[in-house]
Each structure stands twice: as C-alpha cells, then as structure tokens.
Design a protein around this nucleic acid. Structure first.
Lengths: 160, 160
DNA sequence: TTGACGCCCACTAAATCCCATGATATCCAC
DNA sequence: GTGGATATCATGGGATTTAGTGGGCGTCAA
C-alpha cells in the first residue's frame, strides 16, 4: 500500500512549479496515472494529496448506493471531485500548482509536504509550524497513550 | 513475528551513517521494504524503531473511520507519520540518520540499539545508561514482581 | 502578440553505490 | 579439542548517481 511519511520542505518557483518528494514519487510509481491529486484541506492552510488510485476508490464508493442514504451527504461527497485537481508530473517530477488551490493554502514561494499514512498534506510552511506546535502542547497535556500502538483503544470520551 | 532483543552499541560516521545490527536485519528480512522506520521517542533521548510492516498496519488502522471518534485523536495519530522517517539500508546494511531525528535523540558519534520486543529503540548512549541505572534502582526497591510474567497485571492507565 | 504550458537542458549539493580493511565469529579437518 | 581457513560484520572513504532547482525555447490558444 501507499505510505507517505516524513516532512519535506520545498520551493515553489516563479512558474508555480514545485517538486514532489522523490520518496512520494517512488510510492506512487506503481499507479497508472503519473502525478498526484490535490484537494483543498478543510480548516487548514493546506492541500490534501494522494494518488489517482485513491480517487478511483472514492469514486467507486460513491457508486455504492448503500454508503450514503442521505442525498445531501452524497452531494457533499461528490463536491470532492469538483475541488480535486489531477496534476501530472513533468519530466523532472514536478507539478504546477493551480492558482485556486494555491490561494486556498496561501502558498507563496515555499511549502512543506507532510506524510499522513495513506495520504499526505502540502502545507503553508508557517501554518504547519503553528499547527505542529499546538499539537505538541495538547500531546503533552493529554499524554501520548495512542502512539505506536497497533490497536489503539477505542475511546469513549464520555467515560469517567 | 518480529522480535528485537539485546543491546548493540554502534558508531555514527561522519556521513551520519550507522549500521543496523545484523540480527535486526535478519528479523526484518521478510519485510517488503528493505530498511527501518524511526520515530522520535516521547520523553527520551531516543528513537523508536520497527519495520515497514508495522507502519502499514498503523496506516490501515487510521483508514478505519471507527477507531477514532475524536478528531483530535486522529490528528495526533496522523502526526506519527509526519514524524516517521523511512530509512532504507545501503548495500552494507547501514542507514543515514536524518539531522532532525538525530538532534532529537542528541546522537553524536555513537548510539545504542536496545531491543524492546516487537519494536526497538536507538538511544543516546549516555542517556540509556542513566535510564537503565534508574530502572535498576526502582526494580530493586519494588522487587522483581513483573519480570517474566506472561500476562502482567493490567494497570489503570492515566485515564483522565 | 502575449501569456500559459510542456519539454528540454544545466548546475550544485547531497545521497547512494561500491570497494577496501580490520576484527570477529564460524566452520572444518585432523 | 585445536588450529587454520573461511565467512560475516562493522566501519571508512572515494566515485558515481540522483534530487532539487532554475532557466530557455517552441507550441498552442486567447
């Protein structure tokens, strides 16, 4: 399976191009489509990214009538495809960031790829630093009981 | 299953390379990815390590929408992939320690691998010696009641 | 004609490959 | 059991390749 990890800071050049980390390209090399998919991330100055295969899986899921019984949920889910941008690699493993999604993440001349397992995020560098700092605060406060566990406890927040 | 044991002190050369114990490489030889995964250990000058397969299991767990009902827990868990570094073996069974995680563990020119069952730790040598000394103190004070038990008493974790 | 886009090349730093060496462990013959 | 031959391992360094980045040029469409 595709596995995206680590943090990779990159530059955006004056043509709007940005390299995709070689590691990610390797992960995606077995996909049929040579490129990535980017979607504006909800509530973050970032773009969610993954391979074309995952987009296909999502499309198939939407064809399954049992997944969404609520019509409005279905419409919401479909909007994902409207917001998605399929971005092919150039000969050097770069993509061109379309202005709309670039604006969403407020990305200027640099950005950082952040691994998230089966997906990754392309963040506004500063926003990611802030997000990370906040996460670390909360982490030390709550204790890191979930790290590295294979089968995390199912928590019931209302417990206690 | 993968089983990491013993203590193996190793050197870090001027290129930032360190050998992975031959024993560990043997344990990992049946993994699809020829290398290891390292993550900064919370509250210790060390890095947690394991094989790619374990990381994949963690990623699959995160794709299951039922595991985390709390969004913040999900984000915390995802951050693990951001912090994780996938480090491939070179032809001689070595990895290159990336500066960020090397700094976290304050590893200079030596480090020690410490087996921990299904995972291992790569420690700052001095910090491990201190940690071990402290453990031994506490062990003699409390008695060795937990060692060698198949099913240690379940302790109430810091649950709230 | 002007800009956007795809394709190509070039440069530099860093990562990777490959080989050498000494030390240790393992094997085998006797 | 002993001792020598062989294989394995940890480690260092040089050579080669690759990655990330910047820029040029032709093509196509507005």
């Amino acid at each position: 399976m595709a596995l995206f990890t680590s943090e990779y800071p990159f530059k955006v050049d004056r043509k709007g191009r940005i390299s995709v980390p070689a590691d990610y390209r390797t992960v995606l090399s077995q996909e049929s489509y040579p490129g990535i998919v980017l979607i504006p991330a909800r509530g973050a100055l970032a773009l969610d990214g993954f391979g074309n295969g995952r987009l296909e899986s999502l499309a198939e899921a939407l064809d399954d009538p049992e997944i969404y019984d609520d019509d409005e949920d279905l419409e919401q889910a479909k909007q994902l495809f409207a917001e998605a941008r399929r971005l092919p690699f150039d000969g050097d493993g770069r993509i061109v960031l379309p202005p709309e999604i670039r604006d969403h993440a407020q990305i200027q001349d640099k950005a950082i790829y952040v691994g998230g397992g089966s997906t990754f995020r392309l963040w506004n560098t500063d926003a990611y630093a802030a997000y990370k700092a906040k996460l670390n605060e909360n982490a030390t406060a709550k204790g890191q009981s979930i790290r590295l566990r294979l089968a995390p406890k199912k928590k019931k927040r209302t417990e206690g």
